[in-house]
């Protein structure tokens, strides 16, 4: 075995998702009204550009197979989910297995003044599910997540406990929570505490 190959093997990178250490601590409580599961192995891209920039919209459509969503909404394709963050800002979540080099693909396709930033390690993506989700969200956030106001496909950036989060409604009793990496330990502990009576289970992929 050559030295560089040996090195390569030694350096097989070990990935630790943001929730890595919290997961081990909160597996399988007796009852769980809320289940948190972290999704890793995806690429997160912060996209900036003018919504009037048609080539920009077109290349996102071409590469990610999805339309840039309007205010407060998200959109999905088989390749990616895109969330509205601001009037010229979106977050794209791409499954690494389906599209390995989205940055290069987008950079190649897009013309004009845009910004594409890889923030894959910056956030923790959580699916939050269960009968206790509505109450958990009410405890954590000042935003109104009632189904009448915030149905499937809606997303919003708001406060979450004393941190912030991007929240998306996936379906009934099913939400996505995207939290900055450095806050995730705090947020997870906060959620476990808020679910003290009903139970909270944390898992990951």
């Amino acid at each position: 075995m050559s030295e560089s190959a040996e090195m390569g093997q030694r350096f097989a990178p070990v990935l630790e998702s943001p929730l890595h250490y919290v997961r081990a601590r909160h597996r399988n409580p007796a009852a769980a009204a809320v289940t948190l599961s972290e999704r890793s192995a995806c690429i997160l891209l912060n996209l900036r550009g003018s919504p009037e920039n048609e080539p920009f919209r077109e290349s996102v459509r071409a590469v990610l197979h999805v339309e840039l969503p309007e205010v407060g909404r998200s959109a999905d394709s088989e390749l990616a989910s895109i969330y509205w963050l601001g009037p010229d800002e979106w977050l794209a979540v791409v499954d690494q297995a389906t599209l390995a080099e989205p940055v290069a693909a987008l950079r190649g396709a897009i013309q004009g003044h845009v910004s594409i930033v890889d923030v894959s390690s910056a956030q923790s993506l959580l699916a939050v599910q269960g009968a206790g989700v509505a109450e958990l969200l009410q405890k954590a956030s000042v935003y109104d997540f009632h189904p009448r106001e915030f149905g499937p496909g809606r997303c919003a950036q708001t406060t979450f406990a004393k941190a912030t989060a991007l929240v998306r409604c996936v379906g009934e009793e099913h939400f996505e929570l995207i939290v900055r990496r450095s806050f995730i330990d705090y947020v997870a502990r906060w959620i476990v505490d808020a679910c003290a009576e009903s139970g909270c289970h944390i898992s990951g992929t």
Binding site: G86, A156, Q157, T164
Partner: peptide, 8 residues
């Protein structure tokens, strides 16, 4: 400033 929202 919508600091915890759209940052506008």
């Amino acid at each position: 400033h919508h600091s915890a929202g759209c940052r506008r």
